Simulated assay, not measured.
Amino acid sequence: MTKHKIYSMSFAKVYPHYISKAEKKGRTKSEVDEIILWLTGYNQEELEVQLEKQTDFETFFAQSPQLNPSRALIKGVVCGVRVENIEEPTMREIRYLDKLVDELAKGKAMEKILRT
Rank of each mutant, 00 (worst) to 15 (best):
Y96G: 02
V81Q: 14
A72D: 08
T90S: 00
R82V: 03
I86Q: 12
I94D: 07
C79S: 14
L73E: 12
V78G: 04
C79I: 05
K75E: 04
R95Q: 13
K99W: 00
S70A: 08
N85C: 02
E93C: 13
L73S: 05
S70T: 07
E103S: 12
S70R: 10
C79N: 15
Y96W: 14
T90F: 04
I86R: 12
V83N: 01
T90A: 07
G80W: 03
L97P: 15
D102A: 07
P89K: 03
N85W: 02
M91A: 08
E103P: 11
E87G: 13
N85A: 11
E84L: 04
R82T: 11
V78F: 10
M91R: 14
E88D: 15
A72H: 11
V78Y: 09
R92P: 06
I86C: 04
R92G: 00
N85L: 14
K99D: 04
L73G: 01
K75W: 01
I74Q: 05
I94N: 08
L73M: 10
D98G: 11
M91W: 06
K75N: 06
N85M: 01
R71A: 06
R92A: 05
I94T: 07
V78P: 04
D98A: 13
V101S: 01
V77D: 07
V77L: 07
I94C: 07
K75L: 06
V81G: 11
V83H: 03
I94G: 02
R95G: 03
Y96T: 06
E87Q: 13
K99N: 02
D102N: 15
P89N: 02
E84F: 07
G80C: 12
P89S: 01
E93A: 08
R82W: 00
G76D: 06
K75C: 01
I74R: 10
N85H: 12
D102P: 05
V77S: 13
V81Y: 10
P89M: 00
N85F: 08
E103M: 15
R82P: 02
L73F: 08
E84R: 06
I94M: 05
L97N: 12
V101R: 04
V77P: 10
V101D: 02
R71N: 06
G76L: 04
C79W: 11
P89T: 01
M91S: 07
Y96V: 05
V83D: 05
I86E: 08
